[in-house]
Structures are given as C-alpha cells and as structure tokens.
Design a protein around this nucleic acid. Structure first.
Lengths: 353, 353
DNA sequence: GCCGCCCGTGACAGCGTTGTCAACAGGCGG
DNA sequence: CCGCCTGTTGACAACGCTGTCACGGGCGGC
C-alpha cells in the first residue's frame, strides 16, 4: 500500500487514474528531501554526485515530470512564450512559428500563439489579459502588431518583456530582430539594373509595415546610384496581398511605355504580377522580368520561379526567442540584424527584343 | 500604506514593479472573502447580487486577472490545449490554427502549438512530456500525427483527452473530426465527367495520410459509376507536395495519349500541374482541365484559378476544440463529419479541340 | 412555535513546486 | 584543538487559487 500524502477525505482507491508521480514520490524513492530533487531538476549547484545519481534514477523510474503549474506559481517565472500575430501571410507565420518552436524546445519553453486584430479597439486590453499574471515569460510581436502603439504601451506598463520582429523603429525598452530591408531592396534593384533594365517598376508594400517604406527607399537609392531618374508613374501602391499585387500589376502593365522589369515588395504580389502578365500575353522573362521579396514558398510554386530576396524568417524568430530567454533582465536590449540573400531564379533576365 | 499579506523578509518597497492584483486585494476591496471572489470569477452559483456587484466593481477597478498557474494548480484542470502537427502544408496549418484559436478564445482557452516529427523514434516520449502533469487540457492531432501509433498509445495510457482531425479510422477512445473524402472526390470526378472528360488523370496523395486513400477510392468509384474503365497509367503517385505534383504532372502530360483533365489530391499538387502545363505549352483550360482539393490560398493565387473542393478546415479545427472543451468526460465520444463543397473556378472546362 | 432545509458566506486546508534560511559535516589555517 | 569557511542538505513558508465543510439566518411545513 503506497501511502501518499494525506488527502482530506480518504478517497477509496478505485481505478486510480494514473496519478502522475510528484516530487514527493521521487524524493522518497531517492531517499532525499524534495528540495534536493528540486535542485537536481533545475540543475542547481551544491548537490553531491551520489544524491544526484539517486535522484536521476528515481526520476527515470517514476517517469516524473515537474508540474508545470506548480512551477510557474512558485517560481513566478513561466516557460510560456506568447507569439502574437495579426494577419501576415500564411507562409510568413508558418516560418516564424517553425523557427520559434525549434528554439523554444531547446530551452524547454512552449509557444502560445494568439491571433489579434490590429484594428481591434480594445487591443490593449486583450494584450493585457494575455500577458498579466505572470502567465507569460515574454512575447514576440510580428508586424504589424509590433508597431501598434496600444500593444507596446500596455506591455511596457505591465513590464512584460517582448521582442519585436521587423519593427518600424528601434525602441529603448525592448529588443528587436530585423533585416536591412533598405540594403536588400537596393541590391535587388541593382541586380535588375545590372541585367540592363532601365525602366523598373515598383510595387509598394502595406503602408502600415515599416518594411514597405524601407524597401521603397532602397529601390530609389539604387536608382539614384545608377543615375536613373525616379519615375512616379512606375510605382504602384500594394498591400502585400495577392489581390493588391494583381491590381498594381495591371496598372503598370497597362502603361503606354511599360516597364521591362517589376520589383514587387513581396512574393505574393510578385506572383500576382506573373498572373497578370499572362492576361496581357506577356512572355516571361523575356518581355518582362519580375522580382519578389521574402523567398516564401509561393516563389517556387509559380511559373517561372521567382527571383527574390531571401529573408531568414526562421532564424529571426529563433533569435527573438533567444533574446527573450537569455534576457539578462538588464544590459542594453540589443537589436539584432540578420543577413538577407539575393536568390536568382528564372523570372528575371536581360530585357528582351 | 497598503499592507499586503506578510512577506517572509519585509522587502523595502523600492520601485514596486507593479505587482499584479491578487484575489486578496479584490476581496478586501469588495469587502468579501476570497472564496466569494472566486465564485464570481468562476460563475458559480450562490452569490447574492449585492456581493456579485461589489466584486465585479473591484475586479474592474484593480484590473484583476486570475493567476493562470495558481488556477491550474488548485483546480487540476488546465486552460491549455495543445495542437500537434508534423508537416502538412503551411496553409493547412494556418487554417487549422485560425479555427482552433477562434474557438479557444471563446472559452478562455489558449493554444500551445508544437511541431513533432512522425519519424522521430522517441515520439512517444516527446508526447508524454508534453501531456503529462496536467499541463494540457487536451490535444489536437493533425495528420499524419493522428495516425501515429506511438502518439495515440501514449495519450491513451496517460489518459489525456485528444481529438484527431482527419484520421485514418475512428477509434473507440477518442473523437475525431473529418470530412467525407470519398464522397468529395467522387463528386469532383463526376463533375469532370459531366463536363465531357473521359480520360481523367489522378495524382494520389501521401500514402501515410488516410485522406489520400479515400480520395483515390472516390475517384475510382465515380469512374466506375459512369462506366469508364479505370486506367492505371492515368494515375501517378504524389506526396501532397508541390515538387511531387510537378513530377507526377510531367509523367501524366508526357503520355502519348494524355488525359484531358487531371484531378490532383490537393491544391499544391494541382498548382504544380498548372506550372508543368506551361512547360509543355498546353493551353489551360481548353487543352487541359485541372482540379485540386482543399481550396487553400494557392488555389486562387495561381493562374487560372483552381477548381477545387473546399474543405472546411477552420470549422473542423473549431469543432475539435469544442469536443475537447465540452468533453463530458464520458458518453460515447462522437465523431463529427463536416460538409465539403465543390468550388468551380477557371481551371476546368469541357475538353477542347 | 419548532424543526429542518436551503441559501449565502467564509475559514481552512491543500495543490506541487521554489526560495529562504538554518543546520550540520568536513577541511583547513592558526 | 578551536574557529571559520565552504559545501551539502532539509524544514518550512510562501505562491494564488479552488474544494470542502461548517455556520448562521430566513423560511415553509407541521
């Protein structure tokens, strides 16, 4: 008869639904106090090798796992990291999650995902509800949430650590992870110029996303550097969606003197340009070069495969988790900037004719 | 001087990092016991309207949120639902998450996502680590994890409730959510036959996914029903990936007497067939009709937009959460089957020439 | 008018961990 | 041989909530 700790009303043993082993059971089996077990579990110092070994054995034998809630309650720190997103593309979020998940697992953290609307009037309250009461170790914000004032303010007020991915601008109180969108767009534009293009169209991204502005400025900078005049009518407004890319593409392709290349601010819009070209019976890539941005899955799914700029999304997400986990709780919150990479595929070529 | 509960060593008040309000604070302010506050929070009966009102006021004033961990520890039930996935398509998972998330929010649950590899030799242990210690209220399994014996066995042994989405076959101990893949594939095939097609190619899905078999059988059943002989050489093996669809498509399109229509088991593969057709300079949809399955985002992103079969993935995920939440803890676990829908777009047409 | 019942309420004991702190053993310099 | 310091250990009190149970008062039935 294995007597457990006394229960208020001694329950009849019935089918005993496989009560999980507690730290008490481990301690008893190892012949030490629960505190020593706790020390071993948490890799704390000052445990003799002998005790350590006995505890490890007992843990394995009872297949003990520390109770998540008890831990969180007692230690006031949580192994939960929140990932907040609004509505970026599916592939973007899938990549972010994969990267974050991998890093979380290494450190024993878990990921709680939550979908929020940047438009939601009580966005702030929603975030507070999530973050408060120590239930989250920290939060990861993806665009456009990372630039939502309501969110940022609440998190600062509640003193919940958070990391922003690709935010508009660095903030003193929280680190961020990003790539150099400006440089990346410059390189892509320079590459098109290098192919011989002079009339290069541009489809802007969603004005709420900081990346959209940086990419646009990068495009202009490259033009300027090559001594090519910037032409307003070669630029169309997009919103990072396929639909908006389709509309923008049709505008650009309807121009009397249409561009020989179009650089869209992301792959979804570039894919739309590809589709629009078909409607216009334009041969790709001889009559028109198309370039995207992100190197999302769709870049390889369309025909011809897109020349694009690879954004290391998984790595960025992993870095975000790292910043949260290491969190020295002080020291200047570092902003990390990761490398991008030009990926040349078959949607770009020297101008034809 | 707001005296809180006594702390072991009376800490100097210092900057007081915005300690969140506890149930004690609420109780004090409302002039009731913590138990009454607890009752109000949990919508339990036997609270007078007066007390109720005072508590509600205090909760609002202090912007109190119950501590997640304390709750889980004391009540032995968790507001966490785990979503396990392996490697289905991005859009599939995005839809599953969105559906699950929406339903979770309604009930105050949170979603923990976890990526597992069905190949992982200690898959079982990984699942156990996740589920044990009451940290999860239940789990949702997506294909192909829902058919992994190791996972299912561990969960049964640990008595952790779980719901499977689109599993191979019903199981006595856990509910599932699915659509009638067989009927859906039959309808799609019948639609193509109705257009006048007689040589209809088929690209199978991943053999590990039960849906792949059901769809294939549905295709054959429709053929048989229409009195069309099944031709082995019109079927190619795919794996639900774009790449596999490309290869399968090339095989089918290289046939001397190639099909006038191709039905791919999912949209990603159908999109690949579209791309392959371009390489073969085949006009769509006049020279070739292409149909997919799922109605994922890609179906509308490609050109021409795909005729496909809409699977209510979000609803399925929401239903899975519901089954977990309601969980009467008994009563025959019901399996839910949701409706599908044929979505006709521009990738299909009567056979040309 | 008395009994028993139900409703509203709160005291109190956990839930399974971690943090604090005291105790104790052994080594070492004085 | 003594005091001190370091390394190891465990007793005990939180952590913030929920479950159990007891208590008091109002009320209907006899």
């Amino acid at each position: 008869m294995t007597s457990k700790r006394p229960t208020p009303s001694s329950v009849p043993p019935r089918s005993e639904p496989r009560k999980a082993a507690s730290i008490y059971d481990v301690a008893k089996r190892a012949g030490v106090s629960i505190k020593t077990v706790s020390r071993v579990i948490n890799r704390q110092p000052n445990v003799s090798p002998a005790a350590q070994a006995r505890v490890v054995e007992a843990v394995a034998a009872l297949s003990y796992r520390p109770n998540f809630f008890a831990r969180g309650l007692a230690s006031e720190r949580s192994l939960l990291i929140g990932l907040l997103y609004d509505n970026p593309s599916e592939s973007y979020m899938a990549a972010v999650q994969l990267g974050a998940l991998r890093r979380c697992r290494e450190d024993g953290y878990h990921l709680i995902v939550e979908q929020l609307s940047a438009q939601d009037p009580n966005l702030g309250e929603a975030v507070r509800a999530l973050a408060v009461q120590s239930s989250l170790h920290g939060l990861i914000l993806t665009p456009p949430l990372c630039d939502a004032a309501a969110v940022v303010e609440v998190l600062k007020a509640e003193r919940v650590p958070f990391v922003r991915i690709a935010p508009k601008e660095a903030q003193p109180d929280s680190p961020s992870v990003s790539i150099d969108d400006h440089a990346a767009a410059r390189e892509m534009t320079a590459y098109l110029i290098g192919l011989g293009h002079r009339r290069i169209g541009f489809i802007k991204g969603h004005p709420d996303h900081s990346s959209a502005h940086a990419r646009f400025e990068g495009y202009r900078a490259a033009l300027k550097h090559a001594g090519i005049a910037f032409a307003e009518d070669l630029c169309a407004q997009g919103y990072y969606t396929y639909q908006s890319g389709m509309e923008a593409g049709q505008i650009l392709l309807s121009l009397k003197n249409r561009p020989t290349a179009i650089f869209a601010s992301n792959d979804d819009m570039a894919a739309a340009v590809l589709a629009a070209s078909q409607r216009f019976h334009i041969k790709l890539p001889t009559q028109l070069s198309v370039a995207g941005f992100d190197d999302s899955l769709v870049a390889q799914v369309v025909w011809p495969p897109l020349t694009t700029c690879r954004q290391p999304i998984k790595e960025m997400a992993a870095a975000a988790v790292s910043l949260l986990v290491q969190n020295p709780a002080d020291g200047a919150p570092r902003d990390r900037r990761l490398d991008h990479e030009l990926v040349v595929r078959q949607s770009t070529a020297p101008p034809g004719r």
